[in-house]
Simulated assay, not measured.
Amino acid sequence: MTTGLTVLVPCFNEGAQVEVAHGALVEALKEIGELEILFVDDGSTDDSLDRIRRLAETDPRVRYLSFTRNFGIDAVMAAGFGYAAQPWVVQCDADLQVPPEEIWSLLDKAAEGYDVVFGRRVGRRDPLIRKAGSAGLHWAARRVFGIGMPRGASTFRLVRTGVARTITDLRLPWFIPAVPLVGARYAVTPVTHRPRTAGRSKLRLVKLVAHAFELYFGFSRRPLTAVYAAGALGVVLAVAAALTGAGPIPLLLAPLLTAATLAALAVVARYLDGLLRDSSRVRRYYVRSANLPLRPEDTLTAGLPSPPPPSRAT
């Protein structure tokens, strides 16, 4: 039975960091015989793909997928987990804020019988606003929305490949809360964290807020329940006002009621939008180039060859 490891490295405009990450991973994991380093290029516009291709020419352990455009980290995970050749996958960012040596901490913990091991970043070296935002997001998920979030879990994680594919096939917006949702055995173990040495984070405030909404509305029905409760309360108050002969709604309350109505409609619309996207036939990603066999449905040309168009006969 093979006990190899696939290292999934998401890439978006990483430039020279591609070679840096490759060298560090190879050095840290040289004791693993069946090692695969799978770069997933999320539609980079710099020379990241060229650098990955050069590495693949000299190192047979390097495989890559390159998307037709930027599809986002969820698509990267779906592709990486779907094409991983080894029975275990560890997700490791190219910026190496978590040293590759810490992969052994995850592997040692998984040997105790876990399907998923998350790294908990000790002494996290991100900007204060980023750390506070992340902590607040996870606190609200657990306390306000009732979502099962493993405490301290991060994107630095080791997953049994079969379990990873089961979760990504569900097309849920977040991976972390999906792990306890399906009943996978998981653990969280501390790992060191260091400042970014190259480039900058690709996540911006707007994306972080959007990601939070994906979490809350994707895993909790509490906002919808609150709308139902508010509607029921409104009916009770209206009936009570009619029976007691109370006068019309005070002028100052009218704008508040209008705002509450619009907010309720927005919540319902958000859930409907999620249902429509789940039923969409558009795939999570399309691959433009790769150095591994692709499923036809994952390519833009449905697996057909791409010859040039016919020209005039000479």
Rank of each mutant, 00 (worst) to 15 (best):
G23Y: 06
E14A: 13
T45S: 15
D59K: 10
E14I: 00
A24E: 14
L49H: 04
D74W: 01
R51W: 01
V62R: 06
I37W: 02
A78I: 05
L38M: 13
D50M: 06
V62C: 11
D46T: 10
G80Y: 02
E31R: 12
N13Y: 09
G33R: 14
R53I: 12
D42G: 05
P60A: 09
V18L: 06
D41V: 08
G33M: 01
R54E: 14
L65D: 10
R51Y: 03
T45E: 15
A28H: 05
L65W: 07
F81C: 05
G23Q: 12
L29N: 07
A21K: 03
L25K: 02
R54C: 08
F12T: 00
G15W: 07
G43A: 12
E19A: 13
R61H: 12
T45G: 08
A78W: 05
V62E: 04
V62Y: 08
S44Q: 11
T58R: 15
D50G: 11
N13E: 15
A56W: 02
T68L: 10
F71I: 00
A28L: 09
L25M: 12
G15R: 14
A21L: 08
I73D: 01
M77K: 11
A28Y: 05
M77C: 07
G72H: 06
N13W: 04
F71R: 10
S44K: 06
E14S: 03
L55M: 08
T58S: 15
S44M: 11
L65H: 09
I73Q: 12
A79Q: 07
T58W: 02
L35Y: 07
T45R: 13
R61G: 14
G15P: 00
D47K: 10
A79W: 03
F71C: 10
S66N: 14
S44N: 10
D59A: 11
E34G: 00
A56N: 06
G72R: 03
A75V: 08
V20L: 12
F67L: 08
G80C: 07
L55I: 04
T68K: 04
K30M: 04
A78V: 05
G15S: 13
